[in-house]
Design a protein around this nucleic acid. Sequence first.
DNA 1: CGGGCCGATACCCTGACGGTATGACCGAGG
DNA 2: CCTCGGTCATACCGTCAGGGTATCGGCCCG
Lengths: 284, 284
Amino acid sequence: MTEVDTRELRYFIAVAEELHFGRAADRLGIAQPPLSRAIRRLEHRVGARLFDRTGRGVRLTAAGEVLLAEGRAALDAVSAAVRRARRAGRPRRSLTLVMKPGGDAGLLPAILAAYAARPGAAAVDLVFSQSERAAMLRDGRADVGLLHHPQNDLTGLDTEPLRTERRVAALAEGHPLAARATLSLADLAGEPMAQWPEAAERGNGPRVEEAGQMWQLVVLGRAVALVTESAAERPYRGVVYRPVTDAAPATLVLAWPAESRSRDVAEFTAAARAALAPALTGQT
Amino acid sequence: MTEVDTRELRYFIAVAEELHFGRAADRLGIAQPPLSRAIRRLEHRVGARLFDRTGRGVRLTAAGEVLLAEGRAALDAVSAAVRRARRAGRPRRSLTLVMKPGGDAGLLPAILAAYAARPGAAAVDLVFSQSERAAMLRDGRADVGLLHHPQNDLTGLDTEPLRTERRVAALAEGHPLAARATLSLADLAGEPMAQWPEAAERGNGPRVEEAGQMWQLVVLGRAVALVTESAAERPYRGVVYRPVTDAAPATLVLAWPAESRSRDVAEFTAAARAALAPALTGQT
DNA sequence: CGGGCCGATACCCTGACGGTATGACCGAGG
DNA sequence: CCTCGGTCATACCGTCAGGGTATCGGCCCG
């Protein structure tokens, strides 16, 4: 049986996401008929129908659902392979760390210092992303990252827990709930929660793409936000913080691709572990 | 920048393994010039030289080394995606478990029973492999497997430790070392150790592909073998077992692809964990 | 210095992939 | 029941990427 090519996977994923051949073709920059043929050929190679063609649009079959999830991972792996090889070709040895601005709970300086102190440490480049950190680790745009568990999907990543934090609600000073000392999730149920792009659109709050927007909306009382307690250590004028007692705590983790064979990544994670060992033992 | 497709990666891996364009082209079933062009194009896309062309043959550059390791993982991920989708297209729900014959330390019946008792459990197909178990998990030929740590490379796999076993030497009854109650690795240094294909050829012992061959050679005194103690629970006529005190213990682990999102795999591993929980706590 | 080995280049040709036009099917609405 | 819009499939054609053959250029070795 002939091999499946990355182009076919990209085509399939486009259709699976759009659930519409025409729109998918449009997005891919090709016409619809070649796309139909490509999907048909792919179905033949896989040996299973991937879509149910109903008169109106299409639906994924069970096999299609599997191929969508696994195919995305596979394409990420291909991208990662190329990106990492490209980086390895540059004379400068570097390690790319991705984080959310301010999302290090204050631990990053110690980690970077511990790593830099090691002989043969590579330069650490910092990049920032709100909602694509896990994806960037998976497709090779970053080597290590600071994520939150269980808020981020850590599938395919190895992790080292750094610190577990309680979650607090950020409210405008004048907000009625600000009068309470602690809150529960039920108290927040009716409130407009800031919606990050990563979340499926299910909430009733305003969409935000960037932390500054979120804080602005919170100050204005247009949104409330659920953040980690370390965020509350950097007070934001006009915002008060109230613990949410029944919100699952967030664990800040250092994450890297599970299949990583990079010596630099191993060194970095070891340095982070060593740097934080006292704090961790003190915590547990 | 244009996308890298799987064919280019396969071509690259063939050259990287053969370190010879002619032989690689032969193996790929194409002529050498198109292969040279494809590699050159790939180097251009990656943005780094992948090979040092020395007059005699070629050598991998640092970027090439990275692309070899990562590219193999990427191709495995693509194969896995297709295989798993194909399986999901079959009406019969099944889970493929790969193991070495006898390599379950007697734990498999309990695990299978515990899983089968769960509502909605899928059928479990057993397949056997001596040296390709990890590769089969990575490329989708199997869903879960019984491996040994640290003897197997578990990169890219998630694992659940099942049982840690000491390692014992299997010797012919009349072997001089059989007179000793315990052995050390130094004692075995000069002995012909059975060589599995998975090991790089560095030993001085006979090659074996299958356990029966190994035992035969051990009985005949032509080889000694280092095995886990559970193997000694099934005595083999004419073979005696002696603990090797300084050999690193082997941990039998249940392993599955790290990126696995399959509900059946999750159920199976949970069942295994639950089934063995008493034994594990008793052990620690 | 000559021969053999190995990768690169030149040139051609086939077929796979993409485009346009059109067909087939389904559901909605009158 | 027929029509119409929407959606995916089929037919047919052109182009170019990728594969083949022939040959060159450089390097090592005798």
